[in-house]
């Protein structure tokens, strides 16, 4: 079997950036971007904080651009879902169903997927429950809707919905948001968007479609409210299921690299002479939201993808600098 230089698993900010650098280093990366190529940014509208786009850019458009940029330099990109990996040997093996790919190095950049509340809301998917307010807001004109969450995504969702209905409420389990100040400000100064602080959704009600939700405040008091729509923005879990047993993960499923490992001390020695983005498996590197337990931005994912690519280049060729 033909053993390639490097396989990038994942096709969003981190994976595409790694592919751009690897392709420019003439390492001919194969990118298995997944059927959900583009990742979380495909569920957003305007990205306002990605440098270089002073007027903002649509999340899906940013992903298209990154992909085309990687292809321009020769990256081969397939929207295929990896089903199994074997990183034990020197040659890394990656499967898409029955098809096997081999390479000397791998970059893992599979990102993260939307979290559910877990109170049975799945059965109302498309019948009142949504994880993409930007996609579905227009279907909720003048309806009573709730957004659950406290991050930037929840703020964006609430603002998107407020363009179509006056009845948007944010439900947040804490007493303050963790969203960026500018997004918080937009929500908190928008009279149309009240916030239920210190409140959790503990149940969903309805027959054929969502009709209401059960909420619980911090005193433990429960109550039912009428709801036509429930939009979830309660964060993401790293998409590391297929990696179990192959590379070290932390208790929450995040992929551990030298940068995030408790065992290594990230001193200048590692930055200069080792591989900050390498995982517990030699020749396997990690980047983006599946690694990042702290920043989780498109730009930090892209930055980490670049770092992983440079680490791969050094791993394969002994030096880097050909980008």
């Amino acid at each position: 079997m033909n053993v390639g230089n490097v396989i990038v698993i994942g096709g969003a900010s981190a994976g595409y950036t790694a592919a751009i650098y690897l392709a420019r280093a003439t390492l001919s990366p194969l990118v298995l971007a997944g059927e959900n190529a583009g990742g979380q940014l495909m569920f957003t509208s305007e990205v306002e904080n990605y440098p270089g786009f002073s007027k903002g850019i649509k999340g899906p458009d940013l992903m298209d651009e990154m992909r085309k940029q990687a292809e321009r330099f020769g990256a081969e990109i397939k929207n295929e879902n990896v089903t199994k990996v074997d990183f034990a040997g020197e040659v890394k093996k990656v499967w898409v169903g029955e098809t096997e790919y081999q390479a000397k190095a791998v970059v893992l950049a599979l990102g993260a997927s939307s979290r559910m509340i877990g109170v049975g809301e799945e059965k109302y998917y498309g019948k009142g429950m949504s994880t993409c307010a930007v996609c579905d807001a227009a279907f909720y004109k003048d309806k009573t809707v709730f957004v659950v969450g406290g991050g930037d995504a929840a703020m964006e969702d609430a603002l998107a919905l407020a363009r179509f209905t006056n009845k948007v409420t944010i439900i947040h389990r804490k007493a303050e948001f963790r969203a960026s100040k500018i997004m918080q400000q937009r929500v908190l100064t928008e009279k149309k968007i009240p916030v239920m602080w210190n409140t959790e959704v503990v149940g969903v009600i309805g027959s054929n479609k969502l009709e209401g939700i059960r909420v619980k405040d911090k005193t433990g008091k429960e109550g039912d409210v009428v709801a036509d729509g429930l939009f979830l923005a309660i964060g993401h879990t790293p998409a590391t299921d297929i990696l179990k047993g192959q590379v070290e993960l932390d208790g929450h499923g995040y992929l551990i690299t030298n940068m995030t490992s408790n065992k290594s001390q990230m001193n200048q020695e590692i930055w200069l002479n080792s591989y900050p983005t390498q995982t517990s498996a030699v020749g396997v590197f990690g980047a983006g939201d599946m690694v990042d337990i702290r920043y989780r931005q498109a730009i930090t994912a892209a930055g980490m993808g670049c770092m992983a690519a440079l680490d791969v280049e050094k791993f394969l060729t002994g030096s880097f600098g050909s980008w």
Binding site: N36, M42, S45, P60, C132, V134
Partner: peptide, 14 residues
């Protein structure tokens, strides 16, 4: 679908 919907763009090539 709609043009501006990201997950619709994921589905389109399939």
């Amino acid at each position: 679908f709609a043009e501006w919907c990201g997950p619709c763009r994921m589905a389109a090539p399939i």
